[in-house]
Structures are given as structure tokens and as C-alpha cells.
Design a binder for these strands. Structure first.
Length: 329
DNA sequence: AATTTGCGCAACCGCGCTCGG
DNA sequence: TCCGAGCGCGGTTGCGCAAAT
């Protein structure tokens, strides 16, 4: 990446156009027409490359530009044309008088794409997102309740509130690789609440497709109960909240507190479901560190994904001996 | 009131094509 | 046939503003 070669060589201006530059270009082209763009720049007295002048004229100064928001008819036409032409914006623009390819491209990327996804349509293929599911899948999934917990570029975490659902149920509804699974439990009673699973979409499958596959299985709740966000810095001991959703046991018996959208989560080691109570987290300033006052053992380090910064985070598992747990009741 | 976040849009960038010397 | 300049296109970036926190 760097300055466009022609601009660099000739020390030409870049960036936003000033009203004076616009006036010069408009005045020149109105009088003489554009002809060769590289000479337009010189003859109009502009410190710009021809390419920049051409773009400014086509996308902004041209007198036949329509401007203003797209109407519904235009939007429908864009969708229709895109289904046949794909991302050939200039060809699409040729069918919409007064609109530029750039304008249509921006409108597509910022608005139409979103609308199509909301309607369960893949904006690339113009086909339903859940095309991999069969009628049987949808029928069988009717009784399941899903709630998306958090998604990132290639990973989807979904929580089921249906107690009776089994991990194998979820795997059956996705034609992707076997998702990794863990159970969630009520922190007070220890009774199962459901399962969490994360599925990693293969490269051939977009996140939208994956999300769409799940969203068509059942209706998502309009609001997802928020997990409490852990404080950024913890100096003293804290109590595990009593809300069942805050405590999630994992397959290896460890438990974690916090949700995947928090900057970090706490994984405090083996948790005895019968022994709810207070623990002393050893998290400080978003990083794990060992609190010397606590008699904890360090386990194997592992890696998680920080959904805020979109980068991997290294974690350390801490195993607390029994005295670290104080009964709530 | 200050800061952060999200979004829309203008402009840039690199690639590929065309055309003339 | 080759080469370079110019042009057109689609993808991407980054600025500025408004909304949210």
C-alpha cells in the first residue's frame, strides 16, 4: 500500500476535493469536455491525476446525477439485477439512470446485504441461507429454543435453554463438522440448564449460512439475557453471582464465569457442583496472574478467543483446593 | 460533557483490458 | 509482437458524522 504511483511521481494532491477544485474541473469539462483524463488535470490547472479527476466527475460532478436516497423501485431493481449480474456494478449502474456504480456498490454493501440476510436470503447467491437443511431437520427442531451467545468471524456460539435437548441433537441439525459441546448448569442447584456448543464453519461455509441454518430452526428470542461483565480489574475476592447463566460448567469439570463478549473470562479450575460459593479469582487488568495470597495450583495453559479485540488470548487454568470455596448458604 | 462505536460514503488502490506507437 | 500509457472496474480504506454509552 502506498501512494498511487502517478501521484507520487508528480507530487499530486490526494484526498477530499475542495470546492475550488470542483469548480475548476466542472468549468473545464463544461467548456471542453473531458477527452483524455490525464490532460484534463493539467489543462484545468489541477494538481490531481487524471484518474482522480475522472472519478470525481463520474461520481460527483456529472450534471445528470440523481443523488438522494434510493427509492424502493430502484432497490428492487438492484436486487434483481444483482441476482443475474453479480457484482458487476457498472453494468447494474447502466440500468439505473443517474446512479453511479460506486453509489450502488455502497448502497448494496451498507443496506441491501443486511436486509437480504434478515429475510434469510444469501446476498451472494440470492438463495435461502438454510439450503442445507432438510424438512425433517426443521420439523425435529421445532421444540428447541436457541439463543445466539456471540459470534465472530468463523465461530458461532449458541446456547440452548431446552433441558431435554442432547448434544447429539445439535450436531444432527448442522451439516458442518461436529460442534464442540458443553453443558451449562444452575450454579445453586446444579441442575442442568441446557447445552452450549460452538461450531466452526468450514471455509466453504460463510458465517451467514451457519447463522441462517440455525435461525431457521426456530425463532430466536428478541432479547438475550445479558451476562454480567466482570470488572476490568479485581483486587479483592468476589462472589460468584447466583444467576445460573453466569456459571457454565465445561466438559472437563472446570467452570467459567463471564460471557464470550466480555474482554476476558475467568476459568477458575475444577468446580464441584455441590460446593457453590465464593472463589477468589486471580484476574488482574484483563490478564491472568497468580495471586500470591491464594493457595491455587496452575494447570495447563490454553487459548481462547477475545471477541472484543478479535484476537486469541492465552489463559491459564487455576485449580483451587477446597478451602478456597466458601459455602453461600 | 466526553468518549466510544457504528455507519455511510467518497476516494483510493491494484488489476486487467485496450489501444496506439 | 511488444511495451507502456490510459482507462474502467471491483474491492477496500478511512474520514466524518451521528448515535450510543
Amino acid at each position: 500500500m502506498g501512494r498511487h504511483s502517478c501521484c507520487y511521481k508528480q507530487r499530486l494532491r490526494k484526498g477530499l476535493w475542495s470546492p475550488e477544485e470542483d469548480a475548476k474541473l466542472l468549468s473545464y469539462i463544461t467548456k471542453y469536455g473531458h477527452g483524455c483524463w490525464s490532460s484534463v488535470a493539467k489543462l484545468a490547472g489541477l494538481q490531481r491525476c487524471g484518474k482522480s479527476c475522472r472519478l470525481r466527475w463520474i461520481n460527483y460532478l456529472r450534471p445528470d446525477l440523481k443523488r438522494g436516497p434510493f427509492c424502493q423501485q430502484e432497490e428492487d431493481l438492484i436486487v434483481e439485477l444483482h441476482s443475474g449480474l453479480g457484482n458487476r456494478w457498472s453494468q447494474i449502474a447502466a440500468r439505473l439512470p443517474g446512479r453511479t456504480d460506486n453509489e450502488i456498490k455502497n448502497f448494496w454493501n451498507s443496506c441491501i446485504k443486511k436486509k437480504l440476510r434478515q429475510r434469510g436470503i444469501d446476498p451472494t447467491t440470492h438463495k435461502p441461507l438454510a439450503k442445507t437443511l432438510t424438512e425433517n431437520d426443521n420439523e425435529a427442531a421445532k421444540n428447541l429454543q436457541f439463543a445466539p451467545v456471540k459470534s465472530n468471524e468463523d465461530k458461532l456460539l449458541v446456547q440452548s435453554h431446552e433441558v431435554s435437548s442432547k448434544p447429539s441433537d445439535f450436531a444432527g441439525y448442522l451439516s458442518f463438522q461436529q460442534p464442540s459441546l458443553s453443558a451449562s448448569h444452575d450454579s445453586c442447584t446444579g441442575s442442568p440448564l441446557g447445552f452450549n456448543f460452538s461450531a466452526i464453519a468450514p471455509s466453504s461455509c460463510s458465517l451467514e449460512t451457519l447463522t441462517g441454518s440455525i435461525s431457521t430452526l426456530t425463532t430466536f428470542p428478541s432479547t438475550i439475557p445479558a451476562f454480567p461483565t466482570p470488572p476490568a480489574q479485581v483486587n479483592s475476592s468476589i462472589s460468584l453471582p447466583s444467576e445460573s447463566s453466569c456459571l457454565t460448567s465445561t466438559s472437563n469439570g472446570a467452570f467459567s464465569y463471564g460471557d464470550s463478549s466480555a474482554p476476558f473470562s475467568w476459568d477458575c479450575g475444577n468446580f464441584d457442583r455441590q460446593r457453590q460459593g465464593q472463589v477468589h479469582p486471580v484476574v488482574e487488568d484483563s490478564k491472568w496472574s497468580e495471586n500470591p495470597q491464594l493457595p491455587c495450583l496452575t494447570g495447563s495453559p490454553f487459548q481462547a478467543f477475545n471477541d472484543i479485540k478479535h484476537e486469541p488470548v492465552n489463559f491459564q487454568t487455576f485449580e483451587f483446593p477446597q478451602p478456597c470455596f466458601q459455602h453461600m448458604q
